[in-house]
């Protein structure tokens, strides 16, 4: 099954407003988040198909981060339902979501500054057990090392985050998320501040991950690196759904063009 067919099916499946739990690995129905008087997310509904790379696009302030904070459990939504792998998970705390297989990177890069890259990744691999003999003998280091190499930090294993360049920090974020062995990975604004070759390199990594069975949702406000990467896109603005479809479809969508200051999207 090619990625195109999946995207087409997805586009038709979500035309009707009703989202049901089985619509995808992640299904969100009527998500609403209010902060006092401010409505950040306004009855948003969408579904993420297994093994697709979904782009979540919108201008700054559109509510992308808020949506994902609600989905990943950072805070509960004011209203609406979130299903993951068919089960309702609305309001489940973040560490639970991670245990269920949903991982995320942080746009603002929050690594642990007091330890090396290797140990940062190793933390993600630790079990949620209080008393354990694990770790006394340096377990996990082999596996953590493998992940670091995977994300391109193989030669920086023992550096601290402070010593990493910007691209390295992003890779570390990916490494930490991968350490939790996720089925669904939410990547928050990865391409900001990356050079052309770095964008390509990260995109290749994400594609590899998808080919190995992972589902990816990539959030960004900038279309540049995103369009070649994603199978399908959801565009939101002012907290609600603006458009949905394949990259070509949304590029040619007049409302989307208008949202980005009327005109070309590159």
């Amino acid at each position: 099954m090619s990625a195109d067919t999946t995207a087409e099916e997805a586009a038709t499946a979500t035309v009707d407003d009703e989202i049901s739990p089985d619509d995808g690995i992640l299904a969100v129905d009527g998500l609403r988040k209010e902060f006092g008087g401010l409505v950040a997310v306004d009855d948003l509904s969408f579904a993420v198909q297994e093994q697709e790379i979904l782009g979540f696009i919108g201008p700054n302030g559109a509510g992308k981060s808020t949506t994902f904070n609600c989905v990943t459990g950072t805070y509960p939504p004011t209203a609406g339902t979130v299903w993951y792998k068919g089960e309702e998970v609305t309001g489940t705390p973040p560490h639970e979501m991670v245990k269920r297989g949903m991982a995320r990177t942080f746009q603002s890069f929050a690594p642990l500054e007091d330890r090396s890259v290797l140990k940062n990744v190793a933390l993600s691999m630790m079990n949620d057990n209080l008393v354990t003999m694990d770790g006394l003998l340096g377990e996990f280091h082999e596996e953590a090392r493998a992940i670091c190499e995977r994300v391109g930090l193989g030669d920086r294993l023992h550096q601290t985050p402070a010593e990493l360049p910007h691209a390295g920090m992003l890779r570390l974020e990916l490494g930490r998320a991968l350490g939790t062995d996720p089925d669904l990975l939410l990547v928050d604004e990865p391409f900001a501040g990356l050079s052309g070759p770095e964008v390509e390199s990260v995109s290749d990594l994400l594609l590899e991950l998808r080919d190995e069975g992972m589902t990816l949702v990539v959030v960004d406000h900038n279309m540049r690196g995103l369009l070649q990467l994603i199978d399908r896109a959801i565009v939101i603005n002012f907290g609600s759904l603006l458009a949905e479809g394949s990259p070509d479809e949304i590029t040619n969508n007049p409302e989307v063009q208008e949202a980005y200051l009327g005109g070309g999207l590159e």
Binding site: P93, H95, A110, L112, N120, D128, N129, D134, G135, T180
Partner: peptide, 22 residues
């Protein structure tokens, strides 16, 4: 053991701990 690493991680950045599934 790991517990120690997790405790110091809590001191360093609690969100990172949650993000690690702990």
């Amino acid at each position: 053991s790991n517990t120690g690493s997790i405790l110091t991680a809590i001191r360093e950045d609690e969100d990172a701990v949650s993000a690690a599934g702990l």
